[in-house]
Design a protein around this nucleic acid. Structure first.
Lengths: 343, 343
DNA sequence: GTGAAAGCGCTAACAA
DNA sequence: TTGTTAGCGCTTTCAC
């Protein structure tokens, strides 16, 4: 059933039916009722492509997921974020189109999306510090919003980020309050913006207490279990090994638990571990977390909010860029590890 | 730059240019060269919507992700699978459109996708045993492929599945060979097809050895860390508690490790644990896995293969449905837990 | 308040 | 081998 058929059934012109369905004011209320009823009855759905061709809009938003040959891993948080964004899109009548892209191909993909006109806007994931994608999208005039931030980009743009710096600064402060001074940092890959910000939070907390920074205690890498295992094994061989660790994700923390266990130590008792796990908060179901975690209330909600920002931008392109900084929620589990103040 | 502009530049008709670009045989090689060069030079990209309108195809494939209010969790494997599928789509010139859908809304969404005509085919995720979506899609004549299977559906359709039954049967056999007879099963939600198959593999292995089944040792639930923690805590209170566990995902295994630890036991030494972790194989980086895992070589590759099946179906609708059963790869880690044969 | 007609950018019969 | 024309399903002037 298309518009032509529907208007034939009603004995009206396509124009009138279209107007009735799209809420134009000039159609009489009686006609509108009839039209809407008939559309409902025949479960008429306007053809997206035809509508798009006529209006110049595609009613779709693209998410571009970069996959480098370096780190092939897909962030486990990704599904949740997408789910949240999907809810907003559905509510606003947008489709979500996903492109998984080798990072070497990214520029071409963005340009193509624009010229093929199959999206009205784009969400940029996993920004690096001076991410070239932002200038590119600004250049071609495609509305976009970034999940995260690119610190070294000065011009304003839409973004939503979690306050990584403050989370790590607070977590470090927490450990410092317990009397820890040797705190290992297991960060993500430091070309990623989030990792850079987390590191600066860690450094600032140490600096504020006048504690010197030991480069041997700072690692960055892809967040696998094995990364945590090996990093901690190596740090434990240092003459003055850490009494606490700050970790960028729960995944390496699993390896840490194992490394400590191999050394006869228990995580959360002999050694403190704090993870920032917006990644895997669904691993924990109850309140009995043996880690102290800096977790975000909901990745999904973040997806929803970022989608809303982008939709707003698309419907009113004159609107100035929106930004949103979410504060990580700190959750204290059952055990926090040793309190060195008591010694 | 659109077709009209491009043909004007070349002094040819739109038709000829279109034919040259789409590889039609009747255009002269000389003209084709010229056209292709000009298209390249002006980086011409045909408008997807217009092309779709004219051809009746949308060059897009939909993935529908059901999210029930019951289990809100998004499977962490999802991102990897999607990444694999995305590669195939990109190679074949398809876009991927994602819909995250409340399961109550699913039927409407499928019908809409069809009548709005914005996808040429659909991938069905997370099938239940007699999944109604399959009949629905067959009814409206939309090409589709299922990631997994729906056991109770008799009519043929495209699917790709991992051999869940054989994986769990082999894993159970492995434990039986070690002398275990009390084996706890921590399964996923049993309305899911995969969980049902895994359970039957477990049962068959026990049956083949004449070992009676204890319903108290079989659990099903959503695969969270806490589920593993609580299930094992409760099973350990049984008079004859399990010496081994078979787990549907690595996530509950984390809780199991904790529950055992609380009881002074070490997973992989005092108690055997086998997980089926196509979920989180990226947790493990090296060869030093303390679990025996039945893991699939690559979720990503599975995504690629399923996409290829669907693409094949779309390009030739007369082709009979394809199916593909992947065999889980069994990986033995450092330690397998106690060998009861020696006692 | 309603309709006729043009056009969005492309493909595909049909002609030449 | 190339061009002309109609049409995909919708929106949008412009006229009535």
């Amino acid at each position: 059933m298309n518009l032509k058929d529907l208007s034939a059934v009603l004995g009206l012109s396509q124009t009138t039916v279209s107007r009735a369905l799209n809420g134009y004011p000039e159609v009489s209320e009686a006609t509108r009722q009839r039209v809407v009823a008939a559309a409902e009855k025949h479960s008429y759905r306007p053809n997206t492509r035809a509508k798009g061709l006529a209006t110049g809009r595609s009613m779709a938003i693209g998410h571009v997921i970069p996959v480098s040959t370096q780190h092939e891993m897909v962030n486990p948080v990704f599904g949740d974020f997408i789910a949240g964004a999907g809810e907003s899109y559905a509510a606003a009548g947008y489709d979500m189109v996903l492109s998984v892209v080798q990072d070497s191909q990214e520029e071409r993909v963005y340009r193509d999306m624009f010229s093929k006109g199959n999206v009205d806007g784009i969400v940029v994931h996993a920004p690096e510090m001076q991410d070239p994608r932002i200038a590119l999208l600004q250049g071609i005039g495609m509305p976009f919003a970034v999940h995260g931030r690119a610190s070294d980009i000065a011009t304003p743009y839409n973004w939503l980020d979690i306050n990584n710096k403050s989370a790590f600064q607070r977590a470090t402060d927490f450990l410092l309050d317990l009397g820890h001074t040797r705190i290992g940092l297991l960060n993500g890959l430091e070309n990623m913006d989030f990792a850079h910000r987390r590191r600066s939070g860690y450094l600032e907390a140490l600096h504020n207490r006048g504690i010197s920074v030991d480069p041997q205690l700072m690692r960055s890498g892809e967040m696998t279990e094995n990364y945590g295992y090996q990093a901690v094994q190596q740090m434990m061989e240092l003459p003055d090994s850490p009494t606490a660790y700050l970790v960028s994700s729960m995944i390496p923390a699993i390896g840490i638990r194992r490394a400590l266990h191999d050394a006869g130590l228990v995580m959360g008792r002999d050694v403190s571990v704090i993870t920032h796990d917006d990644d895997l908060s669904y691993l924990r179901n109850g309140d009995d977390v043996p880690l102290f975690t800096a977790t975000r209330s909901s990745v999904r909600d973040a997806g929803r909010q970022l989608a809303d920002i982008l939709i707003g931008q698309i419907s009113d392109p004159t609107k100035p860029p929106q930004t949103k900084l979410l504060e990580a929620e700190l959750t204290v589990g059952r055990s926090t590890g040793p309190n060195l103040r008591g010694r």
